[in-house]
Design a protein around this nucleic acid. Structure first.
Lengths: 194, 194
DNA sequence: CGTCTATTTGAATGTACTCAAAAGCGGTGG
DNA sequence: CCACCGCTTTTGAGTACATTCAAATAGACG
């Protein structure tokens, strides 16, 4: 796996010298994750933030009644982790699982701290990443509060068409906060024209 | 109003020299906002991110049916803005209104960009602020998806006791994503011991 | 092929909403 | 200081959106 994609991802927001790029790449750990393999399980220490080089991952939370709530999907060119636990060194609340065979680049918390010191431009890079993540979550909260399930489904499809093609309806339902049965009903109405 | 509180807020994450602090303070614009006054209205350009020096603000979104969804509350020592619109120069989606007489310090987008260039430590500061905001929103999404209204209410009270004391039930209901009538019913059950 | 899981369908149920009206509370002006 | 007005909160009846449970069908994978 060449590090081109991740360097390109970073290049969208900051410019690195050859040396800086080489140093950064040296901090990354490659990992191949087979479909259904776990990058993180609840209760483990979340040591890494991961860049998805190829494939697709899903982060979800299991509640007391054993129901899954999908927190996010990540396809190629996205970053994913259990941010709360990564930052606060807490046992993970989330499972992160491969939806298809995937290839990721992991950056540990310690490496990241070192990176911030050695190449402060990365403070900017991750400021922009965090900002984007915050905005997306906030838009999601607004939509969850103010739109009915059917419209949330529409918006999901139009906002994330590439993801929609890779995941099951059950997973979409758990992202939208509804049951698979109800999502099926929504789709049923729709195809019958009403 | 002395700038001590905001400097202390920043001092939690980065250390500034006298000069840097003075430069930063020079970028801020003070504003007194009376109870029920607006810091931002939907459709306006959101030019500022605001630090709450005293008082309390509420950000909310109005949907097509005219229902309010409360996005966040901010009391002294918090930062607030319509982040999506602040960052992307879009017309505001949110109203930001004072819940009580408040005093805020506003930092414009242009000033902030300049600040990032002149004092790059602020990249770190806002990286940490954004990170915290992202984590809070993500936890909120998890709880909205996996907890019933009654438990979300409990958690709100225990997580934000200082806010709970300042706001109406109607506002709490709109933060939790339920109607005021239903929140009232929850509270009714509770006081009757069940 | 056969097994496992995802999806669909339908009936019964529950959680939360709407609408309406009464009661409470806070602020304002006479 | 009290009376009134407007808004919040409570209460209740009827309703709607979404869930649960169960079973049938369809797809994916070894």
């Amino acid at each position: 796996m060449t590090p081109e994609l991740v360097l390109q991802n970073i290049g969208k927001h900051i410019a690195l010298t050859q040396k800086e790029a080489a140093y950064f790449v040296g901090l990354l750990k490659e990992e191949e994750v087979p479909k259904k393999g776990f990058v993180l399980k609840e209760g483990q220490t979340c040591k890494y933030i991961s860049f998805v080089h190829s494939g697709a991952l899903r982060a979800y939370h299991l509640d007391q009644q054993g129901r899954e709530a999908t927190i996010m999907f990540a396809i190629a060119d996205w970053w994913i982790t259990d941010m709360y636990c990564f930052i606060n060194n807490q046992p993970a609340m989330l499972f992160i699982q491969a939806i298809e065979d995937s290839c990721i680049l992991k950056l540990s918390r310690d490496s990241l701290e070192e990176l911030y010191v050695r190449v402060p431009k990365f403070e900017r890079f991750f400021r922009i990443i965090m900002q984007g993540a915050y905005i997306r979550e906030q838009l999601r909260v607004i939509q969850n509060l103010s739109l009915p399930a059917e419209e949330r489904y529409d918006r999901f499809l139009s906002k994330y068409p590439r993801i929609a093609g890779k995941v099951t309806q059950k997973q979409i339902a758990s992202y939208l906060g509804i049951t698979p049965e109800f999502l099926s009903a929504i789709r049923g109405n729709r195809s019958r024209g009403k």
